[in-house]
């Protein structure tokens, strides 16, 4: 259970996230929606402390996350994986090494500096890649992949962390509809099969409606909606998006291709048999 108690973020004079208090039970898939600049990204990045909160508290299974330092903080980041809009992979390393870097927390100084990974880690990374249909590119240099492929590699890296929580910061904002579906299906499968809590920032309304158990709407740093997709009426949505409502809705109209996959694991578009 992830509890937020008045979590705040202030940049100089502007308040990005006003005191937020809510609770996310284990295994829930949560979508955070709102227009750009509403504080979604800041809220998400505070959870793994890539952004430091300015005030308030955050508890995971009763442990105070906001007070962690040094190794304990890195342990929490290892438990709480993150997927980024721009993938944030190391382009010049191969795919396999990028995935294995998800286990760096468990390495000692020498082995991580020398880049030594065990056979078990290699096997585990290959399995994770295979689960996302990406094992065939394991030895390719990462920056030769397409955006959709990179995001799946990033999810594989997150998986080998064996996290308890998965954060996804606009995971599909840089992808075409087909790849967006593959990535969202993968996140949903992880949520269902592994029982991971998934917290996902989304800018399109219907993706959130179709994939998430719960939707949190943010406006100017304030949580203005918190409920199930069915509770999110068009009027409530219009309020969240304000001036950007037309855009969010029209996107909802055009991205009807995005329906949760019938079979739960992600189906890769072209899979090389090996």
């Amino acid at each position: 259970m992830l509890e937020f108690k008045g979590l705040t973020k202030q940049f100089n004079s502007t308040i990005a996230v006003k005191p937020a208090t809510f609770t996310i039970p284990d295994g829930q898939m949560v979508g955070i929606i709102g227009r750009s600049g509403a504080g979604k990204s800041t809220l998400l990045r505070m959870i793994n402390r890539l952004n430091e909160p300015s005030g308030g508290q955050m508890l995971f299974q009763g442990r105070d996350i906001t007070a962690l330092k040094g190794r304990a903080l890195r342990e929490w980041r290892n438990e709480c994986a993150m997927v980024f809009q721009q993938f944030n992979l190391v382009g010049r390393l191969n795919v396999l090494t990028n995935v294995m870097s998800g286990r760096l927390f468990h390495h000692d100084f020498a082995s991580s500096m020398l880049g030594i990974f065990t056979a078990r880690e290699r096997a585990f990374a290959i399995r994770a890649l295979d689960r996302l249909g990406m094992a065939h590119v394991a030895l390719q240099q990462t920056d030769t992949l397409s955006g959709g492929q990179m995001q799946r590699v990033a999810i594989a890296r997150a998986l080998v962390q064996e996290p308890r929580v998965m954060l996804a910061d606009e995971p599909i904002a840089s992808l075409d509809p087909l790849n967006a579906k593959v990535v969202m299906d993968a996140l949903r499968a992880i949520n269902r099969q592994d029982g991971l809590t998934v917290i996902c920032n989304l800018h399109t309304l219907d993706t959130a409606r179709q994939y998430c158990d719960r939707i949190i709407g943010m406006q100017d740093g304030v949580i203005v909606f918190d409920g199930t997709p069915t509770e999110l009426t068009d009027r409530a949505a219009r309020e969240i998006y304000g001036a950007e409502a037309e855009e969010a809705f029209s996107e909802a109209m055009t991205s009807t291709a995005l329906r949760p996959g019938a079979s739960a694991p992600a189906q890769p578009e072209a899979r090389v048999v090996n």
């Binding site: 396999l96 286990r103 056979a119 078990r120 880690e121 290699r122 096997a123 585990f124 990374a125 290959i126 399995r127 295979d130 689960r131 094992a135 394991a138 030895l139 080998v160 064996e162 099969q193 592994d194 694991p265 090996n274």
Partner: peptide, 27 residues
């Protein structure tokens, strides 16, 4: 393929993966 934990990976699993992706285990 479904969930698999790091701790549960056996030597047999490693050998099987190595057989399918020999190059991934280092040239």
């Amino acid at each position: 393929m479904s969930t698999l934990t790091y701790a549960a990976i056996s030597d047999v699993d490693i050998a099987a993966t190595r057989k399918r992706h020999p190059k991934a285990f280092g040239d």
